[in-house]
Amino acid sequence: MATETVLRRMGYTVLRKIGEGNFGQVKLATSEKHPNMVAIKIIDSRRGSSTLVQKYLPRELAILKKVKHPHIVEVHNILKMNNGQVCIVMEAAISDLKREIKLRHHIPTGLAKTWFSQLVSAVVYLHKQDIVHRDLKCTNVLLTADYQVKLADFGLSRFSKGFPEMSETYCCTLFCAAPEVIRCQPYDPKKSDVWSLGVVLYQMVTGSVPFKEKRAHKLLRVQRKALQYPVGITVEEPCTTCCSTTLPLARL
Rank of each mutant, 00 (worst) to 15 (best):
V86F: 11
C243Y: 09
P238E: 13
Q129R: 14
A112C: 10
R9E: 15
L151Q: 04
C243N: 13
T30M: 07
G207D: 01
C172V: 09
V120K: 00
R215K: 13
M204K: 00
I94C: 14
A62L: 08
K190S: 06
H127F: 11
I107Y: 03
L57G: 12
K214Q: 14
V200F: 03
K17D: 08
E237W: 01
Y125M: 08
F154I: 05
T234P: 00
T3F: 10
A2L: 14
N140K: 01
G48H: 02
L7E: 05
L57P: 14
L201W: 05
Y202H: 07
Q129G: 09
Q129A: 10
T234M: 11
E237F: 00
S244N: 14
Q85H: 15
L111F: 12
I182P: 06
P230A: 04
Y125E: 09
Y170E: 00
L126D: 04
T245A: 14
R104D: 07
N82L: 13
K150C: 10
P230W: 04
W115P: 05
K80G: 12
G11I: 10
P164E: 09
L249E: 15
I182C: 06
E91V: 08
V235K: 02
P189C: 04
M37P: 02
N36P: 07
K33P: 06
I43W: 03
E4Y: 13
L142K: 05
A250V: 10
N77R: 14
T240A: 01
D130H: 14
V231P: 02
Q85C: 15
L142I: 09
L136R: 04
H71C: 03
P70G: 11
Q54A: 10
I182G: 06
V14W: 05
K218D: 11
E4L: 08
P210Q: 03
Q25T: 14
Q223C: 05
L52N: 12
T234Q: 12
T240D: 01
T234G: 04
A177Q: 03
I43H: 00
W115V: 08
C242P: 01
K113H: 14
E20L: 11
K128N: 10
Y187W: 04
H105Q: 15
V75E: 10
V199L: 03
I43Q: 02
K68Y: 12
E236N: 08
V222R: 09
E32K: 14
H133K: 12
S117Q: 11
G11S: 10
H76N: 12
F163S: 14
D146E: 11
